[in-house]
């Protein structure tokens, strides 16, 4: 494991912790898209189908369990926790799941490395992860007051993707394995979706101003 991969995983973990902090401690999910959180739960459920059959390392198993457990508990909190649920911006969070899930499923059935159930599900999870942030970005654009934790959460998620790209570049030059088009293109698309957000995030940081995305 190289430093970019570890840093990527740690920023991913930090993003989840920031979100859990907001939800669990402040008891608020204002500005957080339930749609995106549900899509992430689906991403991890379909990607880690082999969690108990394909052992890679203690680290991998623990991290998979953390991402699975946290994503489903975040969804539960927003939907079922009395106080947290009250802060959910339901009327603003209007993105339709199916517009995202169906194209990803069709694409995974058409473009995959092997046509088996597990492989298609794994590929589907890659495509889905690439676009799962869209409802969250739409909600951010509609939110007038983006609080610090929400901004940091999205920033950390974007940073995790950018670091994974550096990890692939590093691995490409240091390990002799072939090219992983599906993983790379999906990952690149995912990272590009954050470009606009990054721009305004750094602007607000530089000017010491509140983060606001233009509509």
């Amino acid at each position: 494991m190289n430093i970019f991969r570890l840093a990527g995983d740690m920023t991913h973990l930090a993003s989840v912790l920031v979100l859990l902090l907001k939800i669990h401690t402040i008891k608020s999910c204002a500005g957080i898209s339930l749609k995106t959180q549900e899509l992430y739960a689906l991403v991890f459920a379909t990607r880690y189908l082999d969690i108990f059959t394909n052992y890679i390392s203690f680290y991998n198993t623990i991290m998979k369990l953390i991402f699975l457990g946290s994503s489903f508990s975040i969804v539960w909190y927003i939907k079922r926790h009395k106080i947290v649920h009250r802060s959910y911006d339901k009327d603003q969070d209007t993105f339709r799941h199916w517009f995202i899930v169906l194209p990803c499923l069709v694409l995974a059935l058409l473009i995959n490395e092997r046509f088996t159930f597990k492989e298609v599900m794994w590929t589907f999870s890659l495509y889905l992860e690439a676009v799962a942030i869209l409802p969250q970005l739409v909600l951010l654009q509609r939110t007038r007051n983006i609080d610090n934790l929400t901004g940091q959460y999205v920033f950390l998620l974007g940073a995790y993707r950018a670091l994974y790209i550096l990890n692939w570049i590093y691995r490409y030059f240091t390990e002799d394995h072939y090219i992983h088009w599906i993983t790379w293109i999906a990952g690149l698309v995912q990272t590009l979706l954050y470009a606009d957000f990054f721009y305004y995030y750094f602007q607000s940081w530089k000017n010491n101003a509140k983060l606001e995305l233009p509509a």
Binding site: R5, D9, H12, D50, N54, I56, S57, N60, M63, K64, F67, E113, R114, E119, W122, Y164, N167, E175, H177, H180, T183
Partner: peptide
């Protein structure tokens, strides 16, 4: 498996 390399990632 053809894609085992990327499957060691999260």
């Amino acid at each position: 498996s053809s894609s085992s390399v990327t499957k060691d990632e999260l």
